[in-house]
Amino acid sequence: MERRNSFEELEAETIRRYGSPPGEISNNIRRNIRVFHLFGDLIDLFFPKVLRMFASMASGSSDQHNSKDHRTQNHSKPPNISNENL
């Protein structure tokens, strides 16, 4: 025979008496979770870019600078127009 456990009876009685938490609590939790997810997504989106920016600032060069160099190089090279291509 299973022995009595007053602690479990007390818990059951408390649940019977007070029931569920107020309905707005679950809505508040869902709203908070959505906000946290939004923050998480924003961090996922922008954090690597910010990190790259700081890294390039620390190393004294930037992607922008590099890409400008690359562009300049391309522009400095005249298009290959020769009689053979014409």
Binding site: E11, T14, Y18, G19, S20, P21, P22
Partner: peptide
């Protein structure tokens, strides 16, 4: 689990308003 968590919070905090806030914080 919310009913059981709520019952525990009421039992420990002895106040339904505090218990409701606690359930919210605990589930988050």
């Amino acid at each position: 689990y919310s009913n059981k968590v709520y019952a525990k919070c009421i039992s420990l905090l002895k106040n339904e308003v505090d218990a409701s806030d606690a359930v919210q914080e605990i589930f988050i």
